[in-house]
Each structure stands twice: as C-alpha cells, then as structure tokens.
C-alpha cells in the first residue's frame, strides 16, 4: 500500500496454526460452539468450531461495526473503551472481546455452557491471541510480507473487466 494509506498486514501458515490452536483450546474448555476472529475493518480472519450456516462476510462486517459503534458510545460516557460485549439470545448468545485493538474475538455459544465460563476462558484466549498478533504486526512493520506472484495484477485486472459488466 502506498505511504499515507492504510497499512496492509499478512500472516502465514505458522501464525495461522498458532491462532487456531488457541481458539480450539478455548472452544474445548468453554464448551462454546464456534469462535471467529474478525479484524477491526470488518474482515473475517479465521473461524474454528462448528460450520457456520450464515453469511460469514456479512457477519464480520456487522461485528466490526457493532464494536466500533460501542467504542464511540464508551467515549461519550467517559470510558476509553468497552473491551468486551455480550449479546444474549433465547437459544444462542455471543461474546465479543477486543484483541490488541486490532481484532475482535467472537464466541458463539448455546445453553450447553454458561456466560461465566465463556467469559473466564475468553480472557485467557485474548492474552494468547494478543501475543500472537503482536508478533504478526511487529513483523509487518519490520519487513515486507511475501510478494504476490508476478502477473497477479494483470490477471486480476482481466477478471475485473470480466466480472464488472452489464
């Protein structure tokens, strides 16, 4: 990305394994159904657990918007932030937690577990994830990520012409 714009970031297979292990442990220990990591711009980073039967791209964009709107509400009442949010449904509930101000951890859970247990286990997971992403973002500042294959831009432009037409 050009200077002055938003920075890009990237992570590879070893980052991914480390992150998924933390999320898998969280699900095992909390008995929750599914965990998603979403970045603050609304993009889904990864999911672990039960297969989602909803539109995950829409879910991620709404999650980021939800968190951002609540950050603003926090500042209006004199708080720096709300570092976690809880939405309770009749059968399904979700708990959202900030990870290093860059990502949001979302855990979906049913009545098979309790809010208290989920909350405790999420705290541990957030510590592990924060450390993992400190490494990812630290590296992003130090060095360029792997370069996209040559020809990517040309091929993508052809695809754009093909897709975006009447």
């Amino acid at each position: 990305m050009a200077p002055g714009g938003a920075p890009s970031w990237s992570f590879g297979p070893s980052d991914s394994e480390r992150i998924e292990e933390i999320l898998s442990n969280l699900l095992y220990e909390s008995n929750a159904r599914c965990a998603l990591l979403v970045d603050r711009t609304g993009q889904l980073v990864t999911t672990v657990g039960e297969q989602l039967n909803f539109d995950s791209a829409a879910f991620a964009s709404l999650t980021a918007a939800d968190f951002s709107a609540n950050d603003q509400l926090a500042s209006l009442i004199g708080e720096d932030e709300f570092d976690s949010l809880f939405h309770q449904g009749r059968n399904e509930s979700m708990y959202l937690a900030d990870v290093g101000k860059r990502l949001i951890l979302v855990v979906l859970f049913s009545q098979q577990t309790t809010l208290g247990l989920v909350r405790i286990k999420i705290k541990d997971a957030v510590i592990g994830l924060s450390k993992a992403f400190e490494d990812v973002f630290g590296r992003a500042q130090e060095e360029e990520g792997p370069v996209l294959e040559r020809g990517f831009v040309d091929e993508a432009e052809d695809e754009i012409d093909r897709l975006f037409r009447e």
Binding site: M1, A6, P7, S8, W9, S10, F11, G12, P13, D15, S16, D39, T41, G42, Q43, V45, T46, G145, P146, L148
Partner: peptide, 15 residues
C-alpha cells in the same frame, strides 16, 4: 488495510 492471508490464501480489499 487490505488483508492478505497467506495461510488461507485470501485477499480482501475494502472500497
């Protein structure tokens, strides 16, 4: 902030 995920091989761009 385009996100390039080399693990799942995805690129997402926000317009």
């Amino acid at each position: 902030m385009s996100m390039i995920n080399y693990a799942s091989r995805e690129i997402n761009c926000k317009i």
